[in-house]
């Protein structure tokens, strides 16, 4: 049974952690604090949030300790990742998932932090949230979206291509149909990076959402081929492809777009799926709960939640 953390209330304390890379500067951290205050919560900066160890915010043990401290503390109600980069995967072997399970609380992040979220989701059977790393929040729309999602214990509004996107409400169906199942997902490379490990996402009968940024088409294809070879595409219920900013051929010789490449696999495996869903870490992105039941209408580009994400 999936554990649902409590919804956030005004004045709740939120731990700001850096499971991967550090915020670029103390100023970026201060701005993240201001963003969290704007949501009506009280930011608590983790001990190693700004530590420097190469591209990592401190050693693997230090970053894991910050995560464990935040989960274990009774005064902390939620945990927000500050920055992506790389390295949350390196904390996994240092985490105590049974301890995390005893202290269910909201955790939100994106990009590389998908590794952390996916691991907590399946090792602690807890609903986790894919949403922007706080340092990258730069629009009031994101602040409102995060606040309303994480403060709600009722069923969240459906996900459809945002009215703010251009052209408004546009989606592109790669294979039509309807699907239902438990929702999982996040950054494509991060999900591929857990394959073969005990932390890997389980794809059976799932609706999965994928997003990626700044990546070459052929690399997206390479990691998606791993899912195909593993047989995951035979067992998946549906796919919502989200935002893929700055993804394209770049310096590679690939002529096909990632949409072409992925669509071929969708048709081959008859997977209800659609592109251009507002899922990722932009100002238009929805905060996505991982681990609750949902329905995908790929024909009409609509993802509906069928249960609440929080208690």
């Amino acid at each position: 049974m999936t554990i649902k953390p409590h919804a956030l209330k005004k004045g709740d304390q939120i731990a700001l952690v850096s499971p991967a890379s550090r915020p670029h500067s103390a100023e970026a951290l201060a701005r993240a604090e201001a963003v969290v205050e704007k949501m009506g919560f009280k930011p608590i900066i983790a001990k190693h949030a700004l530590s420097i160890n190469g591209y990592l915010a401190g050693t693997d043990e230090e970053r894991a300790q910050d995560i464990m401290d935040a989960f274990s503390s009774d005064s902390i109600s939620g945990i927000f990742c500050l920055e992506g980069g790389f390295g949350s995967i390196k904390t996994l072997s240092h985490l105590d998932f049974s301890q995390i399970k005893k202290h269910p609380k909201i955790i939100m992040g994106s990009h590389e932090n998908t590794c952390l979220l996916t691991a907590i989701s399946n090792q602690a059977s807890m609903v986790v949230f894919h949403g922007p790393n706080i340092c990258s929040v730069d629009r009031v729309e994101s602040i409102a979206e995060i606040k309303s999602t994480l403060a709600s214990s009722t069923i969240l509004p459906p996900v459809t291509p945002s009215l703010g996107s251009f052209p408004a409400g546009f989606h592109h169906t790669s294979y039509p149909g309807n699907a239902q199942g438990t929702l999982i997902g996040g950054n494509l490379n991060a999900i591929a990076s857990l394959m073969g490990t005990k932390y890997s996402a389980h794809f059976n009968n799932k609706i999965i959402f994928f997003c990626e940024r700044d990546e070459r088409n052929d690399i997206i294809e390479r990691w998606f081929t791993s899912f195909y070879l593993a047989g995951h595409l035979k067992r998946i219920a549906g796919i919502a492809f989200g935002e893929f900013p700055d993804c394209g051929p770049k310096d590679s010789l690939s002529m096909k777009s990632y949409q072409d490449i992925l669509t071929e696999r969708m048709i081959e495996h008859k997977i209800p799926s659609t592109f251009n869903m507002p899922i990722g870490d932009s100002s238009l992105s929805r905060v996505m709960p991982i681990g609750i039941k949902a329905k995908l209408d790929a024909t009409n580009g609509k993802l509906e939640f069928t249960e609440s994400a929080l208690d």
Binding site: F86, K90, S93, L194, G196, Y199
Partner: peptide, 13 residues
């Protein structure tokens, strides 16, 4: 960091 990610994946497996 990309090499490190791949090595970490193999290690976790």
């Amino acid at each position: 960091h990309s090499i490190d990610r791949m090595i970490t994946q193999l290690d976790l497996a």
